[in-house]
Nucleic acid binder design. Structure first.
Lengths: 301, 301
DNA sequence: TGAAAGTTATGAATTTGTCTCATGAACGTG
DNA sequence: CACGTTCATGAGACAAATTCATAACTTTCA
C-alpha cells in the first residue's frame, strides 16, 4: 500500500474532529473504515501515528508530521482543481497562434496586447516558425489559431472570417509607375519586386496577379521585415505589394505612392482557422472580435 | 474517484518517459493500466490531460498544471517519509520532560542545551505544569521522561538512576546555626524555613527529616525561584534546604554557610523515569548520559 | 499508398484493496 | 461496577485498479 491523499484527508479530519467516530461522520464513511485506514498507514510507514493510551486519541510526533504534510498538500490540490475548472469553463487556456501571412504581425501584436489585459490566465504566444505546416499543426493542437487567407475544407477545422483587405502596390514617389492610376501585371516586367521570404504561391502579388498573367519581374528581392521593405521602396531600390493595413500607415508620407492592383483593385479575405471544438470558448471569440476591431482601426487610419 | 498520489506519479512518469508504454515499464504496471488511469483522471477532472492527435502523447495545458502539482507534492511526501525513518530509527523524536523536583532546572537546562546540539531533530520541551501527575502523564505519553526521586513499580515504566545528591542546609553566615557542624531536625524548631511551593511530602527536608522527627518550623515560607530562595537566605530572612548541586554554586560565597543534615548527612538518588519501550532509543540514552555528566560537573565544582 | 511497426484505447475478467457490518475490547465516568 | 463512549478487529460485500487480449490509430518507410 502507498500513502495516498485519502490518508491525508483522514488524518486531518481525525485531528480536527478529535476522534475516529466524529471524523467518520464528517467523511461520510464508517468509523471502522478509518480505523483500518489508520492501521494500514501505520503499517506502511512503520510508525505510530496516534497515541492510543489516552482516550481522546492524540496525534503522535509522526502523526503531527503527517498532519503538516496534509496541511501543505491538500490546499495545493485544491488550487490545481480550481485551475481545472478555469480550464473547463474557458476562463483560462492556451492561445498559440501561427501566422501564414508575414505582414500580420502589424495588426496581431496590438490585438494580443489588448487581449492579454482581460485574459491574463490564457497562455498567449505567436509561433512564426511553422508558416508551412500551420494547418496540420492546428489539427495536432500544436497551435490553437492560424491566420490564413486560404480557407480549406478540413474535418474539425473551421475558418472564421476576420476582415477583407487589399494588396496594394507601393513605390517611391519618384518611381515612373507613380504616374499610373492603377497597376497591372505587365507593369512589373522589368521592375525589382521586394517580397517577404516565402514561397511565391503564398504571396498575393504572385498568386493573384503575376502567376495568372505569367509575368516575371526583372528581380525578386526578399526582406524579412516590413520596415525594411518600406525602407528599400522609399529609396527606390524596388517596388512592393503589401496589405492595405500596412501601407495605410505610410499613405500620407510624401516618400511613397500607393496604387491599386488592376483597375478594379484586388480584395482578399483573412480568416482565423481554429478547431471547431474551441469555437465557443469565450477567449477565442474575444480574440476574433479584437482582431476585427483592430483591423478596422488600421484601415480607417 | 478521487485524485490520488498514484495519479501524480503516473503523470510524471508518462511525461518523463514520453509515452504510456515506457512509463508503464518504469512503474512496473501495464500500459493498459496507465491508459485507464489517465482516462479516469480526465473524467474526474473534466479536462483533457494529454494531446492525443499527435503521436508522442504530449501534455495539454491541464496536464502541465497537474505535472506542476506532482513536482510540488511528490518531494514533500518523500520528505515526510524520510522523517518517518528518522522517527523509526530514533534519530528524531520527542523529549518532553516533566520534573517533579523544582531545583532540577539548575542542571537540566545546561543538559538540554548540550542535547539540542546533537539532536536537533528531537523536539525538546520541559513541562513544569504537571509536577503531580507526572507519572500518569508519562504512561499516557503526554511526556517522555520524568525526573523523580521516588521510584515506583509501574508496568511499562522504568526508573533509571541518574546520580546521588545530598539535601544540604543553607543559612546566612550570620545565622546562629552557623556555629554547628551539622544540622538536626530539632534545629529547625523556631526557624523560618524557605521552600519551593510544593506539598511537603515532596520536599526532602520534610520527608527525610522533619516529618519523621515530628518537628514543625516556626514559619514555612515559599518561593518559586532558587535565586530568590538564596536571596532570602542571604539576607537572613530564613534558612533553607537545597540539593548540593545548587548550593555548590554558592559554597564559596562568604554570604552563606552550608551544613550537612544529620551527623552522617542524608543522601538521595535521582531517577529518570521513562517508558520501557523507549529505553533503547539513542537520544534517550544520550540525554541520560549528559545528565550524569552535568551532575558530576556541578557537584565537583 | 499501402504494409509494417509502434503506440494508445477498450472491454471483460481478475485481482487487489477498501468499506461495511457485527462485535469485541479498552477506557473513562457517574 | 455498570454504563456509555471510543477504538480495534475479522469476515464478507463491494468497489476499484490492474491485467489480458485485442482493436484502433499514427507514423514510418518502401
Amino acid at each position: 500500500m502507498h500513502i495516498e491523499f485519502r490518508h491525508l484527508r483522514t488524518i486531518k479530519a481525525i485531528h480536527e474532529a478529535g476522534g475516529l467516530a466524529k471524523a467518520a461522520d464528517q467523511l461520510h464513511i464508517t468509523q471502522s473504515a478509518l480505523s483500518h485506514q489508520v492501521k494500514g498507514l501505520e503499517d506502511q510507514a512503520g510508525v505510530e501515528l496516534f497515541v492510543r493510551r489516552s482516550k481522546p486519541l492524540r496525534l503522535s510526533a509522526a502523526g503531527l508530521r503527517l498532519l503538516r504534510l496534509a496541511n501543505q498538500v491538500l490546499p495545493q490540490i485544491e488550487a490545481t482543481l480550481n485551475d481545472f475548472t478555469g480550464l473547463r469553463d474557458g476562463s483560462s487556456g492556451r492561445m498559440h497562434i501561427a501566422i501564414e501571412c508575414h505582414a500580420c504581425f502589424e495588426w496581431l501584436f496590438p490585438v494580443l496586447e489588448r487581449f492579454r489585459k482581460n485574459w491574463g490566465d490564457v497562455d498567449v504566444d505567436i509561433r512564426p516558425g511553422l508558416a508551412f505546416d500551420a494547418l496540420p499543426a492546428l489539427m495536432k493542437e500544436d497551435v490553437d489559431l492560424v491566420v490564413s487567407s486560404d480557407p480549406e475544407e478540413l474535418a474539425g477545422i473551421e475558418f472564421i472570417e476576420l476582415f477583407d483587405y487589399a494588396p496594394v502596390f507601393v513605390a517611391s514617389k519618384d518611381h515612373p509607375l507613380a504616374k499610373k492610376d492603377y497597376i497591372d501585371a505587365t507593369d512589373f516586367r522589368g521592375e525589382t519586386l521586394i517580397t517577404y521570404p516565402v514561397e511565391r504561391t503564398r504571396l498575393d502579388v504572385f498568386s493573384e496577379l503575376l502567376i495568372p498573367a505569367k509575368v516575371e519581374p526583372a528581380v525578386v528581392r526578399q526582406a524579412e521585415l516590413t520596415a525594411v521593405i518600406l525602407l528599400l521602396v522609399a529609396s527606390n531600390r524596388g517596388v512592393s505589394v503589401l496589405p492595405d493595413w500596412v501601407v495605410r500607415e505610410v499613405i500620407y508620407s510624401s516618400d511613397y505612392i500607393t496604387r491599386p492592383l488592376t483597375k478594379d483593385g484586388i480584395t482578399k479575405r483573412l480568416y482565423a482557422a481554429i478547431r471547431s471544438d474551441e469555437r465557443d470558448k469565450p477567449y477565442m471569440q474575444e480574440l476574433i472580435k479584437l482582431a476585427r476591431i483592430e483591423a478596422r482601426k488600421l484601415q480607417e487610419a
